[in-house]
Each structure stands twice: as structure tokens, then as C-alpha cells.
Nucleic acid binder design. Structure first.
Lengths: 315, 315
DNA sequence: GGGGATCAGGACAGTTTCGGTCCGCATCCC
DNA sequence: GGGATGCGGACCGAAACTGTCCTGATCCCC
């Protein structure tokens, strides 16, 4: 048993728990001499984790930011917090970090003790955002597939096609791709004997089978998925004219959600993709400036309907 | 230099990167004999991390879920994803995991390499939710304070009181408390020489000073904060009657956001706290069922105003 | 400027651990 | 049965570790 390995890990843990420790404190906690602590610190440094030290009264050891990230030692509560946050970020619509978030989640999920897994589920169930009563993508599906891809092992899931057909699929999973606001799986379909892409929001009960396989030559995943998506990522593209300058509007509308362009005369044009017109209607009107719908006509209908409901409710 | 310590850490890393490895694969990667790999695996097990092994073709080593969480080894992208997710969860309004999320964030933040920190900032800036153009609480403030509390070291920040007075405060920080939808800091105010609570959303430029202090006897933080909050956590408590059964409504409204009670005759009463009545107005009406406002009258006004704007925009 | 607290690290010696090599065995799947 | 894989005991020389000195460096506060 490597007693020293464990001790170095504990040291790392301690240094993460509290920013500053004196050598004697650490020595007590670790049950060794201060000399050994110094040696352990030396070891950590040799491993690439920059431990800064300050002399004099009030000084001590401190773990700093280095070139590489040291292993993160989380306690139970923290692990749950991380898992929950990642699930929300991955399943939701946070831009840009989807795939990495899923990878982290898969890592964490693999080693998460059962009792904590239950807790994560509890918090998630209680925290479905009011904005999306129906979660766009089940984080469990994401994790299961990410894991199967990593192993690599075959996976199965129930898939509902656009026309409503439901069937069980058996695949060799290759890549997860986030495109538009959706998640896609590129995989070798074992029944069709060909490459296919699947929308994750149409899957259910995805899981690895334990059957390992040897990856075959695969086409470029991102290209392949793009080619497979015939329909636009959003059902609607909304365009509205706002009685405020582009600068003013842009201050309240993040660039990932919509494009804002000046339209002369202190007006601007806002363009946003969406599946849910109510959502757009609300947020555009909420900005407070007068708005005119340019397209689509359905947005006008949605606004009228929402307006009528609000009028009815307020009387 | 503990060559073996490093190797064990690498092994842990490898096992997290991909679920299944054969002994020979690991031996190659680590540059040792398979015998040593077996010994390293043994070491990991002794450290409490359950490494499962499967015999036969297609077998291999696999890191399983144990009693304790092993140190998480993240690559750059993953670290960014975790940091961003945590910031969103901590700064936002996710119920229940606030304090643990902040703790994890502080841990991660302490060791996050500079280049990644810049990346995190970039993603965050681009991802402010459309729902909250103004972030309720700056995650940087949270992290700075959490860190100062842990060290412990004195902190300073600019504070804007309810009456608009702005001043710089110097404190010995003690606890962060999430109450209602707000974050509070309980601290010893060095200028007033007394315990005070501060709302984090009224702070700016919070940072540790590097001045360490010895914690003094402190009253119970949660109690103290509760007592200090004279005003309700929300500015408004909205109550509406919905023409749908409590069961139907509850299906679309998470229990953390609102309380739904049956009101006889297939109707139900929804109660929710909020600072932003537009938000409540939209989400309640969006459910699709006819709604009657019970209180507050301001909600009725908000609905009328929003309704008029929508009507105007749709014509 | 002095004293106290703190980190830094060399030298030595006894003990422990480590890692490679060589084996025989247990599983699992085809 | 054969092949791939994990399991672990025994042995031995080399290497690493730890504690115990001891001497310096800093830094801060009085």
C-alpha cells in the first residue's frame, strides 16, 4: 500500500478545501513531520501543481493556478451540485459547451456513488425550468450514449421517427453532435447496415449493451450530421422591427439568442430562431419598446392570442 | 520524486477517460509491466476507489462507483464546461444547491489556469439568459467571498444601500446564506464594529484583501440572516385562479417555483413569489388555461400593460 | 533592529517499498 | 480446447521514504 501516494492525495485535498495552510497544520493533519510535508509539497510541484508558499507570520502553503488542472476533490454535496449544474447545462440550451459538459457528466456519472445519484435525481426533478416544462433532451440519454461511445460499446434505444413510427434500434455509436438547439447521434445502424443520425429528443431508454466493438472507418461526423438535417434547426425564424437603436436593444439581448441590426431612424431589426413563438413574443415585447412584426405571420397570431389571454386575465 | 504516485494518478486519469481498458493497454500507456499495473490497481483499490475487472476476451479494468468520489480529472474543455455550468447554477436561481455549487466553484476557481479563466468569461458573457438580462448575482462576487471565508481573510466591497447610499465596506466574512432567491453575506463589519448582513446583489468589486484574521465567536448565521431580513424575500406574492385542476397545472409547474392548490370545481389556485411581475404574468398565461388574478393588483396592471403591447405589436 | 513565525532544503541512516521476472491459476468466450 | 484476459505469490536488488538534525531565508510586527 502506497502510504505516501495516499498522503499526497490527501494533501491535495486539504489544499483545495481551504486556501491557506501552515506547514505544521498540514503535518498534524497528515500525521507526519513537517519535513515530510515539505517533501510532499515538493512532490506536488514535481507533478505540475503549483503550490505557492509565503514566508513569515500569516504565511503558509497555497494551491495556485497552474498550467494543468489538478484533480478535483469534491465532497458529497459539491459532487451533487456539479452533477446537477452540468445536467441542466447539457440538457438545456446553453451555447457552446454542450459536448464538453456531456463528457464531464459522463466522467462524473461513472464514479458517482449510488446514494448521490439518487440525490441528483431528486434535485433535477424539482428544478425543471419553468421555461421548458418538457426537457428538450434527457440528460440520462446523453450520458448513456457518451459513455457507450467512449467505451466503445454497442447501444440500443427506442426511436420514434417523425412520422410516429416507433422501433428499437441497435447501433454502434460514434459521435454526439450539437447542432442548432438539438442533439444528434451519429451511429452505425446494425439493422440497416449503414450510417445514420438520430435525434436525441426522439429517443427513449438508451443504454449500452456491454457488447464491445471495434470502431470502423467513419465519415466526418459534423459534416454527416449537417447533411442529414434537412429541416432547419428552428421551426420559425422571427423578424421584428423595434423602436429603439440597435445598441440599446443589444444591451438586453445576448448575441447568441438573436441578431440585432440597425434599421435607420433610431429603429432596429431583431432576428431570432425559435420553435416556440410565445417565447419570442414575450421576450421581444418585454423589452418595453414598441414592436412591429415583420415575419412570420404566425408570430402575429401568437402575440394576439397571448395578448387576448392577458387582457382576459387582467379584467 | 514519487514516480509511482504520479503513475497512480495517471492510471486514475486513464480510467476516467475511457471506461474500459485492458491490462496491457494500461501497461503500455504507463510505461511499466502489466504486473505493475496490477499492483497500481491494487493501490487504487486500497485508496477506496473500486476498480472492477472482467476476465476473458473483451474484458478489462473499469472504474466503478464506490463509496467515496475519486478525484475528478478534467481536461481543459471539460473544466470550462463545469465552471460555466456552476456559475450559471450559482448565480441563477436553481433551488437547493446554491451553497455547495459556490463551494465547488471556489475550489475550481482557485486552480483554474488563466487561459481557461478567460474562456469561461467569454462563454458566460455570451450566454446570459434571455430571462435575466441583468444577472441577479455576479458569480465573481460569490467566489471571491466564498474564498475569503474559507481562508479566512478580510474582504472589501462597494455596497449600495437600499436608499442609494454607496460606500466601501471592510469586513471579516463569515457565511454565505441563500434565502428566498437572494444571497446574503453575514460578516463582522470592521467599521461599524458589529455583525451585519449584506445582500450580494448590492455589492460590487468584492475581493479578499489578503489580511488574515482569527474567527471570532459568531451568532448562528442562518438565524441571524433571517432576523435581518425585514422585507420578504420577494417583492410580490402573486396569487391567481386557474381554470384547470391542480393536478393538471402541477404537471407544468415545478414545485420549487410555485404552490398549486385545488380550489374546487376543477379550478386551482397558484401562488408564487416574484420580483418581476411580467415574468409571472407570462408564464401563468402561457399555460393556456383561463386565469383570474386574485392578488396583487399590480399583477393585473402588468398583465394589462403586457397585453396591450402585444396587441399593438400584432396589429 | 530584534524576535517570532514560517518556508527551504542538505545530510545521514534505517526501513520500507517498489518493480521486474517468472510462475501457476482462474475466468470467460468462441 | 485454445486464446485472451485478469490474479496474485515469491524473490531480489535497487530505489525511495521518513525522521532527525541543522542552517538559512523571508516576512511581519513591535
Amino acid at each position: 500500500m502506497g502510504d505516501t501516494t495516499q498522503r499526497v492525495l490527501s494533501l491535495l485535498n486539504l489544499l483545495q478545501q481551504r486556501p491557506v495552510w501552515t506547514g505544521t497544520e498540514l503535518a498534524e493533519r497528515l500525521g507526519v513531520t513537517t519535513r515530510s510535508v515539505r517533501r510532499d509539497v515538493e512532490r506536488l510541484r514535481a507533478l505540475g501543481y503549483p503550490v505557492r508558499a509565503e514566508h513569515g507570520t500569516g504565511g503558509g502553503y497555497q494551491l495556485g493556478a497552474g498550467k494543468a488542472l489538478p484533480p478535483l476533490l469534491l465532497d458529497d454535496e459539491e459532487a451533487v451540485a456539479v452533477a446537477v449544474s452540468l445536467r441542466l447545462a447539457a440538457g438545456g440550451t446553453v451555447a457552446g459547451l454542450g459536448e464538453a459538459a456531456v463528457r464531464s457528466l459522463a466522467k462524473l456519472d461513472q464514479v458517482l456513488p449510488a446514494r448521490l445519484r439518487a440525490e441528483v435525481k431528486g434535485v433535477i426533478d424539482a428544478t425543471v425550468s419553468l421555461d421548458s416544462p418538457v426537457t428538450p433532451v434527457d440528460a440520462d440519454v446523453l450520458v448513456a450514449l457518451a459513455r457507450a461511445i467512449r467505451t466503445p460499446e454497442r447501444a440500443t434505444f427506442d426511436y420514434t421517427k417523425a412520422d410516429g413510427d416507433r422501433s428499437e434500434r441497435r447501433v454502434e455509436p460514434y459521435r454526439l453532435v450539437a447542432a442548432g438547439r438539438r442533439w444528434y447521434l451519429m451511429a452505425w445502424d446494425l439493422d440497416r447496415d449503414d450510417w445514420r443520425t438520430f435525434r436525441l429528443d426522439r429517443m427513449a431508454a438508451a443504454r449500452g449493451t456491454g457488447w464491445r466493438f471495434k470502431p470502423r472507418e467513419a465519415p466526418d461526423a459534423v459534416e454527416f450530421v449537417r447533411a442529414s438535417i434537412t429541416q432547419a434547426p428552428y421551426r420559425f425564424v422571427a423578424k421584428v422591427r423595434i423602436a429603439a437603436s440597435a445598441n440599446e436593444v443589444a444591451q438586453f439581448v445576448p448575441s447568441t439568442m438573436a441578431v440585432v441590426e440597425p434599421d435607420g431612424d433610431g429603429h432596429s431589426i431583431l432576428t431570432a430562431g425559435a420553435d416556440d413563438l410565445d417565447y419570442i413574443a414575450y421576450h421581444v415585447v418585454r423589452l418595453g419598446w414598441p414592436v412591429t412584426v415583420i415575419e412570420p405571420p404566425e408570430l402575429r397570431d401568437a402575440m394576439r392570442r397571448l395578448g387576448e389571454r392577458l387582457a382576459a386575465a387582467s379584467s
